[in-house]
Design a protein around this nucleic acid. Structure first.
Lengths: 181, 181
DNA sequence: CGATGCATGTAAGCTGTTACATGATTGC
DNA sequence: GCAATCATGTAACAGCTTACATGCATCG
């Protein structure tokens, strides 16, 4: 059984949670989730789900109740097995450290800016991060502990990450101010 | 002036820091950095740097002091302008939230596992995260405040992120134990 | 004198993006 | 009736990976 890619895992997971649902719904959910790496373009989602269907990880039933030719997706036994394997693969330290954070990438090169520019940028990013935190907190409220437990956990993770980034940038800003070229 | 992609920005930043340096050195540095999204494959780096050279953002001088045909890269005035623009682009909230964390992606779907499996996985990931933290701390020691200031800042960011993930997973584990399906 | 590291690249393939194309349904 | 949303897809392209190919230098 083939290993799933990152977007494949996420998409398959969404199918499991929302089944029976359309490919469109999967796409919207991906877009809606805050701080996502994925743009969830149609050109990615539809071929991806076709692939998963072709491999027997999801199945589709045609819904002819209206003229839109909706196709309702659900996960198969094989699909759930593949999803579980995908989830468990995170225990691999290499997979675990495949993080991507455009803010931290840029910190390494902040020295390319002048001292005033550094401070101005850090301050404006700090504002953006505050908005970011508010969005994450709102997402938690939209997914309370009373609803889907793991959706709630993931949302909490988003808040903690946002807080961590703010803490980091505040610390960085303090040190930059002290630094003076 | 064209906007730089993420890997382009990072590569250009490394050239600025290490110049004059070879493309190979850029690649090694990318690989060495802990928790990197990029595999820094030759097939990515060499065409990328050729592109930047072609566009006048970096320049190369041939070094014939040995038979390896080394090409020493350095950044141009235009290149530094492009790099600064790339760094400042992080103030854009959309760019800022393009985070990717394979651990958090999977938290949303942890419910696909049985309760015991959830706990076992979380525990083994927690161990891997501890190693992760140690690596990040070592990276800080390798890049002390006495050296390149921003390299040090970036390294600190790595540690804070590692700590944040551990804190998150500990919290998650506690809640999962309480949850009992 | 052989293994490892330095150094540069290419070819095929996969995955994702943007932009386009089409059409039905719903709400104002 | 018209706009927004639901819904499915394709085509062209960009970017990165794996795997391959080549050859010099250095160290034991």
């Amino acid at each position: 059984m083939r290993k799933l890619g990152e977007l494949e895992g996420v998409a398959l997971g969404i199918v499991l949670k929302r089944q029976p649902c359309t490919a469109y719904a999967v796409r919207i959910e991906l877009k809606a989730s805050p701080s996502s790496h994925w743009r969830a373009s149609a050109g990615a989602i539809y071929p991806l789900l076709s692939r998963l269907e072709h491999e027997g990880l999801i199945q589709a039933t045609n819904d002819n109740s209206d003229g839109r030719g909706r196709r309702h997706l659900s996960i198969t036994r094989e699909g759930k097995k593949a999803l579980k394997a995908w989830i468990k693969a995170i225990a691999n330290p290499d997979r675990l450290s495949e993080i991507f954070d455009p803010l931290r990438s840029r910190m390494f090169f902040l020295g390319a800016l002048g001292h005033q520019e550094q401070i101005a940028l850090a301050e404006s990013v700090l504002e953006a991060l505050d908005l970011n935190l508010e969005n994450s907190q709102q997402y938690v409220r939209q997914n309370p502990a009373s609803g889907d437990f793991f959706e709630h956990l993931g949302a909490i993770g988003g808040v903690m990450n946002a807080e961590s980034r703010i803490k980091f940038l505040r610390e960085a800003l303090t040190q930059i101010r002290r630094h003076k070229t």
